[in-house]
Nucleic acid binder design. Structure first.
Length: 619
RNA sequence: GCUCCCGUAGUUCAAUGGAUAGAACAGGACUCUUCUAAGGUCUUGAUGAGGGUUCGAUUCCCCCCGGGAGCACCA
């Protein structure tokens, strides 16, 4: 690399270095001073402890409280809570049904019960009737006391997770496909943080590679500086599409593009300057999108950040017998597990994505010392990550670090993959614009929002619906892009959740109750009472929030949180239709109900926040 | 050709190997003199086909049929 080019790149990296330093400092600080809410302080933990103690008492010794599967039984079962004993059946050398019956009888007969009232064994399940008043008081008290912290736990405290998500490509529009990586990644980052991890959010921008050879070629031959300056992303994208059309006819163009990229990588100062220009305008555009969705990153380390001298790494991989020079001079990896042959370096000496990714991995490892690294990237790159992980493993680089590719299906158009090259990519900005316009129409016609707040409300409702549509589903299957579906604001979308929150806030406002007085009232669990079963069921649902967070984290599936939210809000709306809160006559019961509402609102807000969706107080 | 992913109600999606497979939209019947009806209640309706493992399979294995993606100088 020549000096001018080197300097230009070095200059560019300085901005990123500042972010890296700040993040390392933050990790250090969290290690020393971050405070956590112990998982053991939540209601469900008390119940778990009690059940586990009875299991041990009965003779099942290896039962860990936190691994007990506790669920609310299906509707046709008349019980508050159910625990299955199938997994203990073998160890106890008894049939599940018999085991459940015996343990249940043991529990019911014991005088040591606190949260449990009685138990019945059926078909391998132990169905519990719980001490409802005690549990109701405890849950509502906890939610009010912990507020925005409610749900957070310390299970993974001290662990570090690096998450690689969003990663749009420079000089290309931000497509609806990138939204998936962005919102799933952001949600996972929040979820990991909630269960105790320290998280590094990294936007691994696609700002390097042969495509820049193509783009620069196109710009130099057909580009008009003024036209590009007026509408950079669109025009650069047009040039890129044009290049791909022409190069289909003329193979030489692709060779030319590769040559240009090789020169760029060697630090040709003119080319580096062009690259930097493209990069700058793109980042500016992307930032608008991130602002709209409330997404933020700790570091934005694009691929260009990892352009270094790869000689040493390649030599090492060759010495370890993992890589070798193939026909024509390219560096290849052959016979790694059952993987097909793949390339690390091209014959002309320029690098490939996977090699830069190895370097990226080593940087993250040595800088942030993560326990886990998540790559939130579409499923079409599955093979590439298998290659990367296998390579790091074989070379002994990734010992003790869990690497996971969080993959997701493609957004298809007309049954096939969207393509920038073919110009079939649906621009996210267009979708966002339309859904906000639609939300505005609805808010203006049937909403209860002051005219000056309509725009802001519509913006939140619209962006939330887009985020939620992605986070609601966990499927690896592809999604056919459909405007109507994309713009859907019906129930079953985030609107239902936000509407529920609005209803609660409306009641709390109308009650005229001072929030502090309510908090003080809720400080004593014994003050908190209920009358209707729907109140207990609602409160008990709040006790499961941390469980949902844990499950979402362990499987890397944010949709667990969506499911939880939908169940919680449905439970509330059921309660709402049955009980008139403001007309409650007994003062203490009314206070309790308001405290319950406040608790539910808090959990809805916290759970939505994990999905990066804001609440609104009026709609 | 090889590898991977997906196939659930008319449609779009759920369901850590567990009890009677859940929602939403669409269809049918109710429900606002009552805290926001963007709500609530009831109702019609589904695991692509065939084998296997298991006390138990939408989930795991095999095979077939459909759809998609990937497979050396792209990322």
């Amino acid at each position: 690399m020549n000096d001018t080019g080197k300097n230009a790149l070095a200059e560019y990296k300085k901005i990123a270095d500042v972010q890296v330093e700040a993040t390392v400092a933050r990790l250090e600080k969290e290690k020393k001073t971050r405070s956590y809410i112990p998982q053991s302080s939540y209601t469900l933990s008390y119940i778990r402890e009690e059940v586990a103690a009875f299991f041990a008492d009965y003779g099942i010794t290896d039962c860990k409280p936190e691994s007990l599967k506790m669920l609310v039984p299906p509707a046709h079962i008349d019980a508050d809570l159910t625990v299955s004993v199938f997994e203990f059946s073998k160890m106890a050398k008894k049939a599940p049904a018999q085991l459940a019956t015996e343990i249940a009888a043991h529990i019911t007969g014991s005088a040591k019960k606190t949260y449990i009232v009685s138990a019945i064994g059926v078909n391998g399940y132990i169905n519990f009737t719980l001490n409802r008043p005690k549990i109701f008081g405890h849950v509502v008290h906890m939610a009010n006391a912990l507020g925005r912290g409610y749900g957070q736990i310390d299970t993974y405290k001290g662990k570090v997770m690096v998450i690689d998500y969003s990663a749009p490509n420079i000089a290309k529009p931000f497509g609806v496909g990138h939204l998936r990586s962005t919102v799933i990644g952001q949600a996972l980052a929040n979820i990991y943080e909630a269960v105790g991890y320290s998280v590094v959010r990294d936007n691994h921008l696609g700002d390097w590679g042969t495509q820049f050879g193509s783009l620069i070629y196109a710009y130099q031959h057909w580009g008009d500086e003024a036209v590009v300056a007026a509408n950079p992303i669109k025009e650069l994208n047009n040039l890129y599409i044009h290049f791909n059309e022409v190069s289909k006819e003329d193979e030489n163009l692709k060779a030319e593009a590769r040559k240009i990229f090789a020169r760029l990588e060697q630090g040709d100062s003119e080319l580096v300057a062009l690259w930097k220009k493209f990069s700058d305008v793109s980042l500016k555009e992307f930032q608008k999108t991130y602002d709209a969705f409330g997404v933020h990153f700790d570091v934005m380390l694009g691929e260009s950040y990892f352009v270094t001298d790869f000689t040493k790494l390649l030599t090492e991989l060759k010495d370890k017998g993992i890589a070798k020079v193939g026909d024509g001079g390219a560096v290849i990896v052959e016979g790694l597990g059952d993987l097909p042959i793949f390339l690390l370096q091209k014959a002309d000496g320029s690098t490939l994505y996977i090699l830069r990714d190895v370097v990226t991995f080593m940087f993250r490892r040595d800088t942030f010392h993560p326990d886990v690294i998540l790559y939130v990237v579409g499923s079409e790159q599955k093979l590439n990550f298998r290659e990367l992980f296998a390579l790091c493993d074989a070379a002994g680089y990734s010992k003790g670090i869990k690497l996971a590719h969080v993959d997701f299906g493609l957004v298809l158009i007309n049954g096939s993959k969207m393509s920038t090259r073919k110009g079939t990519l649906v621009n996210l900005d267009n979708v966002l614009e339309q859904i906000i316009a639609k939300a505005k129409e609805i808010v203006a016609s049937k909403g209860d929002v002051a005219p000056e707040h309509i725009d802001a409300t519509a913006k939140i409702i619209g962006t939330s619906a887009l985020i939620y549509a992605d986070l609601k589903q966990n499927r690896n299957s592809n999604i056919e892009f459909d405007w109507d579906k994309m713009l859907s604001l019906e129930s079953g979308s985030s609107v239902y959740l936000q509407y529920t929150y609005v209803r609660i806030m409306s009641i709390l406002t109308k009650s005229g109750v001072d929030i502090h007085a309510l908090d003080t009232f809720a400080t004593t669990p014994e003050n908190l009472i209920f009358e209707d079963v729907s109140e207990f069921r609602l409160a008990f649902k709040l006790a499961f929030f941390s469980d949902a967070l844990l499950r979402a984290m362990e499987n890397n599936t944010p949709n667990i949180i969506s499911i939880y939210l939908e169940e919680l809000t449905a439970e509330f709306n059921h309660f709402y239709s049955k009980v008139s809160i403001l007309k409650t006559e007994k003062a203490e019961l009314k206070q309790s109900r308001l405290a319950l509402l406040s608790a539910v609102a808090t959990v809805i807000q916290n759970a939505l926040a994990v999905l990066n969706i804001p609440v609104i107080t009026k709609m």
